[in-house]
Design a binder for these strands. Structure first.
Lengths: 249, 249
DNA sequence: AGAGATTATGGCACTCAGTACCCTCTGTAA
DNA sequence: TTACAGAGGGTACTGAGTGCCATAATCTCT
């Protein structure tokens, strides 16, 4: 149902534009009742970003699970989770990007979504930095920097039409932030990194998913996000697939 | 007329809340026709930020006129223009802050306003940095940092009830950004980069056997975090326990 | 299986923001 | 006086979003 609504809506948005499409048009094409639309999407804007809620949950889950003394690296990895969601459906992401660029209402809606990611990152950093020594300030500035860097790399890829890999651009952008802030978000360049050795190498894996659920493996932490009501056999299947895929790497 | 409408609206928002105040209520108190409201304010949200349009014009004007070889300093000064607008009416700013914090619609509207400031700053930096050498990337990251730093200092002052001077906190926050980015937004002031560019992101080491499984249910999204190697039966068990727990609410 | 409870969906009516169109009033220039 | 312009007001409409209730599907327990 969610899927049917999102698909019908997106078709219509591409055909007639976002503002010239009413909710009644959408439910007519999907063949469902009008009331059902608002059960699945709290607003007309939400249908354009059907997977952000799940992705946000994935990001917060990842940040809650991550350990170690590299909070800046952790939030960069969290940003890569978002990137993976975009990269999982290049055509959709590119079309949505074009749509969002020319509809003011969608732009501001996207801002509010991005803001929630930023706050998730900032919350993680704040918890690690503590209150003293400008902890909150540094957390917010670094979170904003990471989001801006991520968005810059992502936009580059979206503007190119979704050709190739967005990872290189985003990695490069995030590296810039990490170079400036060091791994611990220290105050000033002098107090910089001195990165302790033993950092295992891992970039978040590519998304195999493109389904309603997602399983990601970060190092040896497995994060699964699914909708309530998903059959358990399917969850098990996806976890096993994801874990098996990254086991020998 | 503009003034009368803004004043009537703000009174009502404080008395009954933003969402429980209709435009008809506002025009009734102001003693004008409903149609006139939308002549002066394109939306109900605009009446809460009656001076941002002017301030944005001031910022862009300043940036267009500024000279010198210190673009980062220039955008910091531009941010101080915004701060001055807030500081000009402490009571109003504090009340508006409290109102904005608890009304989602106003929060997202404010985001769109802040975004325009950020784009003004980024545009100035982009013009100075040029296209090469990650100019665009640096421009956007620095603009985001300056905005985040400004907002952090401003929020500190607003939360304190508008007592004293917001300048100290904002100056300090902006100094942090300038220390990190230098006056020209160079790529790392003196510091040799922590890790060579393009180095893969480090993922922190893990405690070997800390039992860190967790299943959380947010709405109807289930997020599961577990370590690789956890027996599948145990994962299934925990998911079912968590989902069952929240099923009958 | 079948009664009872729970959930998913549809339908209806309503509020309210925002817009299009037209009206009135007032002041100004010829 | 007429002609005109511009500010304000009124009316009716569209469309998003919500509350309430009816009905169908599904689940649970015996």
């Amino acid at each position: 149902m969610r899927e049917a609504l999102a698909q019908a809506a997106f078709q219509l948005f591409l055909e007639r534009g976002f503002e010239r499409t009413t909710v009644d048009d959408i439910v007519a094409r999907a063949g469902v009742g009008r009331r059902s639309f608002f059960r699945y999407f709290p607003s007309k804007e939400d249908v354009v970003f059907p997977d952000h809620e799940r992705c946000l949950a994935e990001v917060t889950g990842f940040l809650a699970a991550v350990e170690g003394d590299d909070p800046v690296g952790a939030v960069c990895d969290a940003a890569r989770i978002v990137l993976r969601m975009y990269a999982a459906n290049p055509e959709f992401s590119v079309q949505r990007y074009r749509l969002t660029r020319e509809v003011p209402g969608l732009r501001t809606y996207e801002l509010s979504v991005v803001r929630r990611y930023e706050q998730a990152l900032a919350g993680h950093l704040r918890a690690r930095f503590g209150g003293g020594g400008d902890g909150e300030l540094r957390a917010e500035v670094i979170a904003a920097s990471v989001v801006a860097a991520h968005n810059n790399g992502l936009r580059l890829w979206l503007r190119s039409g979704g050709e190739g890999d967005p990872d290189a651009a985003v990695d490069h952008a995030l590296d810039l932030v990490r170079e400036v802030w060091g791994r611990s978000g220290a105050l000033g360049p002098a107090a910089g990194p001195a990165s302790p050795a033993g950092a295992p190498v891992a970039v978040p894996p590519r998304a195999p998913d493109a389904a309603a659920h997602s399983v990601s493996v970060e190092g040896d932490v497995v994060v699964m996000v699914a909708r309530k009501g998903t059959p358990m056999w399917r969850v098990v299947q996806e976890i096993e697939a994801a874990v098996g895929k990254t086991r020998h790497r």
